[in-house]
Computed example of a mutant assay.
Amino acid sequence: MRKKVVDGVSWVGKIDWEIRTAHGKEYSTHKGTSYNAYLIEDEKTALVDTVWEPYADEFVANLQLEIDLDKIDYIICNHAEPDHSGALPALMKLIPDTPIYCTKQATMSLPGHYHQDWNFRPVSAGDTLSLGKNTLTFQPIPMVHWPDSMMTHLSGKNILFSNDAFGQHYAHELLFNDLADQCTLYEEAIKYFANILTPFSPIIKNRIVDFLATALPVELIATSHGILWRKNPEQIIEQYLQWCDAYQEDQITIIYDSMYNSTKVIAETIARGILQHSPATQVKLFHAAKADKNDILTEVFRSKAVLMGSPTFNKGPLSSLSALLEEFRGLKFMGKKASAFTSYGWSGEAAKEMLAQLVDAGFTTTDEGFRVHWRMDTDERAKALQFGVDFASATF
């Protein structure tokens, strides 16, 4: 069933309440998601994007209830990723000659996914397509977050179909930001940026600046996932510019794993030391093997500094920490400080190994880490407390 966005523009996507991971198993979707597709009906009719492949038949069947498919004059494919384009094969079987407007890169990635030579119409920045009273303007945004990505602006209605920019994985029947829970919306938006878009922050900032330079008015941002921004849509653009700029809050995140609670006690003691030095600082602790990976990465994105703790196991950290350190390297967090700690029995290389990986991931280390042989005694608890004080002092 279609949902009205504005006169002449309808949402015709799919709300997925059940999904709990996206990008395979890489991204947790506690709040579900949506695959947003839009139908623009003017003198000509354009369909903007489709839905994920598992819902392709449902999408096409529902679309047929809303419009004679032969009346769709144009398809706009802002992005070839299958959660955007997955219904194209089912749709194109019924309207095979309909032109698909997309970037030049998408004319390679779409056939790569679906092995079909459809009627592609590659576009460049500033190219336009008249629908009658309203005009589409295309704005490629390569590496936000794929090379084939683009945004599409609808004049007259002043809608920006923003693709993966400004979205969230958040299922909501009422579509719009002013009708959503504001805390949940913000949390899902920052999680989306932190886990998916952070590696491209400098590029995203430039792409936003490029779009703003076009002076195309924006009264509504129609995202590819989650909530649409109709009340003060500038707020999410401004937020993205902040997130792109080595974003930090007054927070230190401690991430640890522990075999017999020795490393856990060290983490909690260091946390008390941090708060002793900086009582107003937000300090968050996560057990790496128990907490959700993407939630941890979101908190790292927010933080000024990070502490990693693990017992030494096979001359290094436990696998839960190693996996997160690899995520750090890929996400390219900027301007953050770090250190590491370990509890060990026969050797104590874990802290040194984690420090090296933190440096490789772009963090600035503040010291040589903290090591405890076996479990802490009274003197070592005092040293751990002081380590927290010193780490906070080096951070702020």
Rank of each mutant, 00 (worst) to 15 (best):
K231W: 10
G316L: 11
A189W: 04
A56Y: 00
F166D: 00
K191D: 14
L331F: 04
E349Y: 02
V359P: 04
A90R: 13
L285C: 03
K293H: 11
E380H: 08
I221W: 02
C77T: 04
K332I: 15
Q182F: 05
S162H: 03
E380P: 08
S162K: 02
K290H: 13
C183R: 12
E349K: 03
V5W: 01
V300N: 00
T21E: 03
E187H: 09
K264T: 05
F387H: 09
K191L: 13
F391S: 01
I190T: 15
K205L: 15
T223P: 05
F286I: 05
M143Y: 13
R121W: 05
E43P: 05
M334Y: 11
F286T: 03
D377M: 05
D379F: 03
A80W: 02
F161N: 00
I196L: 14
S155T: 10
L275A: 06
F363Y: 11
V389P: 07
Q105R: 04
D97Y: 04
P140C: 12
S109K: 12
S149C: 11
A213T: 12
L297K: 00
I237S: 06
I255C: 06
V283G: 01
V209E: 15
L197D: 00
F211E: 13
H277W: 12
E327P: 01
A125P: 06
K104L: 15
P82S: 09
L358R: 03
W52G: 01
M354H: 06
K93I: 12
K4F: 06
L241Q: 14
F396N: 13
D68C: 03
T198F: 02
D295E: 10
P317T: 03
F328S: 02
W52F: 13
G226I: 06
A271R: 00
Q64V: 04
M354K: 01
H145C: 14
T103F: 03
G86A: 04
Q242R: 11
F391C: 02
I221R: 01
Y192C: 09
L307S: 02
F387C: 07
Q168S: 15
Y74K: 02
N62M: 07
G156W: 05
W11D: 11
H277Q: 13
T152S: 04
T184S: 14
S162C: 12
V218G: 04
G24K: 07
A382F: 04
S320K: 08
A37P: 02
S201R: 00
E353R: 05
P89Q: 03
A361Q: 05
Y35L: 11
P147N: 05
P82F: 08
A61R: 07
S155A: 11
S130T: 11
D360V: 06
Q64K: 09
S10A: 11
I255W: 01
A361L: 08
H84M: 05
P54H: 01
T98Y: 02
L69D: 14
Y38N: 01
G345C: 08
S34T: 15
M150D: 09
V209R: 08
A165N: 02
K315E: 15
R371K: 12
I274D: 00
Y240Q: 10
T342D: 14
K14M: 15
D42Q: 02
E66I: 13
W11P: 09
N177C: 04
A392P: 11
L275S: 02
V389R: 07
V218Y: 06
S10Y: 11
S319C: 11
